[in-house]
């Protein structure tokens, strides 16, 4: 019998994992289903757009600016090993638009927005505000989850677009001011090298990452346990899960858009 204990433990872990996946799938399905079922809360949606979109601009801008600059330096230094310093504008553009822009913006949003959504909703849960919503004839999924998820999904492509532009600008600044590139040539090379598919994939990734980031915040917040520890766990869990799912989704989307 003792020999079976590890198997039993493994079985319990697998069952728990499957149950968690099932709960998350149901939560996702319910969220999406509320998209087409009134009532809707435009005021909450507007506030979520401001919180997730507008107030994230500084962090997105700074992250992209420094990343673009560092990328230009790295490509220049690395390219020098095989006399390919001239490709800095093209690689910065493709690197920012295809990968670094959406992924870094996604991760920054996971840190800033997912954590804040999870902490806010978890606190509402432990202080019975979610129960209060129900007694006031307001569906918590419609009032709390849907506006945030919808806002994040719609606003993230814009944030990624802004991040892409600022990242390229960071590379341009370093390229022209530090590495001696001609400004007009740098811009021409950037514009010539980028394809529509690069931009579309970047914005599509933004939408998917926004959906994931907000959904994980809401899911962990709504399923938090009691007390301050529950809020802390929900916040931590939401950020970790959002970050991992964003990276996994990035791989899948890259495969879908650019697989040979």
């Amino acid at each position: 019998m003792i020999a079976l204990y590890p198997l039993a433990a493994l079985g319990r872990a697998v069952l728990a994992l499957l149950a968690a996946i099932g709960r998350f799938a149901i939560f996702t399905g319910q969220t999406v289903s509320h998209l087409v079922r009134p009532p809707f809360y435009p005021r909450e949606f507007g506030q979520a757009m401001m919180q997730i979109g507008y107030f994230s601009l500084p962090v997105v801008g700074l992250t992209a600016l420094f990343t673009g600059g560092a990328l230009a330096l790295q490509i220049y230094a690395g390219g020098a090993r095989f006399s390919a310093e001239a490709v800095v504008p093209q690689i910065v553009a493709i690197g920012m638009v295809r990968e670094l822009g959406p992924v870094l913006v996604g991760l920054m949003i996971a840190a800033r927005v997912t954590s804040s959504i999870a902490a806010e909703i978890a606190t509402m849960k432990v202080t019975e505000q979610i129960d209060a919503l129900v007694t006031l004839s307001t569906h918590p999924m419609k009032y709390l989850t849907l506006p945030r998820v919808l806002a994040a999904t719609l606003v993230m492509p814009l944030l990624v677009g802004v991040g892409d532009i600022i990242g390229i600008y960071g590379g341009f600044l370093v390229g022209t001011e530090r590495l001696g590139f001609n400004a007009a040539t740098y811009l021409k090379n950037t514009a010539d090298f980028l394809e529509l598919r690069d931009i579309v994939s970047s914005l599509a990734k933004g939408a998917v990452f926004g959906f994931i980031a907000a959904l994980m915040g809401c899911y962990y917040g709504m399923n938090s346990t009691r007390g301050a520890m529950g809020v802390g766990r929900a916040t931590k869990g939401s950020v970790v899960a959002a970050a991992v799912l964003i990276l996994a989704a990035n791989f899948i989307l890259t495969e879908a858009f650019f697989a040979l």
């Binding site: 019975e128 006031l136 004839s137």
Partner: peptide, 27 residues
């Protein structure tokens, strides 16, 4: 139904009057 919760369960992000009128502003 109306319910008074143990800790009040007021919505932190809304001013007092919107908490009181919550049901009267929706549905």
């Amino acid at each position: 139904f109306g319910m008074l919760f143990q800790g009040g369960a007021l919505f932190d992000s809304l001013p007092v009057w919107q908490n009181v009128a919550f049901r009267l502003m929706r549905g």
